[in-house]
């Protein structure tokens, strides 16, 4: 599903990623860990085409990012769902409208679109808030809307950047349950987090620890995450 080889990325003279390599099989779960500024977000941004691939090689959902043209970026993003710490939803629009957006851009017909949006909203326990503007929802509910929007298209891969970072522990656990559920259905997940408790919730997941843009070997990673 994802193969990254010797990936490096710099902002001016500052290296954000240095020689990062890893792979994730279809249906796999990978945690990206590391302190703030370690390069987790930069790596995710490269993977969903928000930053260009400068050095190294990366293949995501069949797209070779080194050869990806600008006009092909929407095609990549239609195969990959992205969830952010700050939700990135449209606050003045309703839950339904936010979730439907992901299907509308694909030109899906209205009847099918409505069925799928209602189904995902129900699955995430938001059916009573379908027509409420998102700005009136709690943080946990807004994050569920963001997850629903990324999942409604049945993506092959979900990239989640600290999705529980703004939520309290109970909500974080609940959201992890949702991610695990989708993972069970075969969706691959790459999640950036520095919360060890969340990592423990998915024992089968792989962990890639980043420090100053570089991958850290397993033992040091375990120590770093533990700390």
């Amino acid at each position: 599903m994802v193969r990254v080889e010797h990936l490096s990325y710099n902002f001016g003279s500052q290296w954000a990623l240095k020689d990062v390599s890893f792979s994730l099989a279809k249906g796999g779960f990978l945690f990206l860990t590391g302190h703030s500024g370690a390069g987790k977000t930069t790596l995710l941004r490269v993977l969903y085409g928000a930053l260009p691939l400068i050095r190294g090689r990366a293949v995501v959902a069949g797209f070779d990012l080194g050869r990806l043209k600008r006009r092909q970026v929407p095609d990549l993003r239609r195969r990959v769902g992205v969830v952010f710490q700050d939700f990135k939803i449209l606050p003045e629009r309703s839950v339904f409208e936010n979730v439907a957006l992901a299907l509308e851009v694909r030109g899906m017909g209205r009847p099918l679109l409505e069925r799928r949006v209602r189904a995902i909203i129900r699955a995430l326990g938001l059916e009573n808030k379908s027509y409420e503007p998102c700005e009136r929802l709690s943080g946990g509910e807004q994050q569920r809307v963001a997850i629903a929007r990324s999942m409604v298209v049945n993506p092959e891969l979900i990239l989640a950047d600290e999705p529980t970072g703004n939520l309290d522990a109970d909500l974080a656990w609940h959201l992890m349950d949702i991610f695990k559920q989708f993972h069970t259905y075969g969706t691959s997940v790459i999640m950036a987090t520095h919360n060890k408790t969340l990592i423990d919730l998915v024992p089968e997941a792989e962990v890639l620890h980043l420090s100053q843009g570089m991958t850290v070997d397993g033992q040091k990673a375990a120590e770093a995450v533990g700390s």
Binding site: Y48, R71, P74, K88, L90, L101, A102, V105
Partner: peptide, 13 residues
């Protein structure tokens, strides 16, 4: 701007 950014994120052409 946020709306445009989100539309690009979900794969809008």
């Amino acid at each position: 701007r946020d709306e445009v950014e989100i539309l690009y994120l979900v794969g809008a052409k």
